[in-house]
Design a binder for these strands. Structure first.
Lengths: 149, 149
DNA sequence: TCTTCATGCAACAAACAATATTACATGAAA
DNA sequence: TTTCATGTAATATTGTTTGTTGCATGAAGA
C-alpha cells in the first residue's frame, strides 16, 4: 500500500512557515518540500477552510499562519485534511451477508477502533508548539540551519 | 488507499474450513471467497509455514487445519501473513536530514507505535475459537446456512 | 490600463501497491 | 498414464496517491 504522507508533510510545512517572516508562496514551500506547488495548495486548502492558514493572491501574496500553535493539536490538522484513512488493513467486505464474515468483522472492527482511539488521543496530546519546541531543541544541539529539504 | 484485506480474508477461510469435513481445495475456498484459487494458495502458504494448516497435492488433496483454535490468536495469523503494514499514513521521509522533519517524525512515530501496540494487544486477545463461537451464536439467532459468499 | 505574480481549480498523467489471472511445473491418487 | 491438486513465477488489472499541465481569477505595481 502507498502510505499517505500528507499529515507528516503538512506539519513540516507549518513548522517551516512558523520560522519565516511574512507570507510564503506555494512555490517556496514546494521547494522546501521537494514537491509541486499545486500539491501544497491542495493540502493547505483544507487548513484554510478550518481557519488555520490564510492565502492571498497576487503580488506579495502567499500563505500565512493564522492559528495558535499552543492550542492547535495534530488531531486538528488531521481533521483539516479530511480525516484520511488510518489503517492499511481492512475488512474484505463491510456489509457481508456471510455470518462468518460478520463475526470476523465484528472482532476486527473492535480491535481497529480501539487502536484508532489511542492514535487520536495521542494526536490530541501534541500541539504544534510541542513540535516547534522539539525542533528548536534539536537546533540548539546541532548548530546549523534548520532545513535542507 | 487500497486496503489490505488478507487478514480479514484468511480468517474467513479458516472459519469456513473448520465447518467442513476433510481437506478443502483452493478451488472450493476461492468459490466461497469469490476470488482466485491462486490467491488462496498464496495466502495460506504463510500459514502453512507456521504450521497452522497443511496442504496435500493430487487426488483428494487440498487444505486442512492443523492448529488449536483455542490457542491460536488473530495476532498469530497476522504474523503468519508476514506482519503486513498496519497504517495507511506514514512519514514523508523515514531518515530526514531536516530537523523539522525529525521533530515531526518523532511525535508521529510515538503516536503510531502506541496505537499499533494496542492493536496487537487486541489481536492477541482474540482466538480463532472466539470467532467460531460468535459465528455459531449468530447461526443460532438466524437459522440458516452459514454462508452464501 | 496593462503587465506580472500568485492562488484556485479541474483535468490528466505517472508511480505504486494489492489483487487477479495465466501458464506451466510438480507430485499424488485412481 | 491420466486426472487432480498444489507451487510458483510472470503478467495484467484495478485503485490510490502524488505529480503535472493548463487556464481562470484576482491583486499589486509600473
Amino acid at each position: 500500500m502507498k502510505r499517505d504522507s500528507r499529515l507528516s508533510g503538512v506539519l513540516h510545512v507549518l513548522l517551516h512557515m512558523a520560522e519565516m517572516e511574512g507570507p510564503v508562496t506555494s512555490e517556496a514551500l514546494a521547494g522546501i518540500m521537494q514537491t509541486n506547488p499545486v500539491v501544497i495548495r491542495r493540502t493547505l486548502a483544507g487548513l484554510r477552510e478550518q481557519g488555520l492558514v490564510t492565502s492571498v493572491k497576487g503580488h506579495g501574496g502567499g500563505w500565512r499562519l493564522c492559528c495558535d500553535f499552543d492550542t492547535v493539536t495534530l488531531h486538528d490538522i488531521y481533521v483539516a485534511l479530511g480525516e484520511p484513512a488510518v489503517f492499511a488493513m481492512g475488512n474484505r467486505t463491510e456489509s457481508p451477508g456471510c455470518l462468518v464474515e460478520k463475526a470476523v468483522n465484528a472482532h476486527m472492527n473492535d480491535a481497529f477502533q480501539q487502536a484508532e482511539a489511542v492514535l487520536m488521543a495521542r494526536l490530541r496530546d501534541v500541539t504544534l508548539a510541542d513540535l516547534s519546541r522539539d525542533f528548536h531543541r534539536g537546533l540548539q544541539r546541532r548548530d546549523h540551519s534548520h532545513c535542507s529539504s
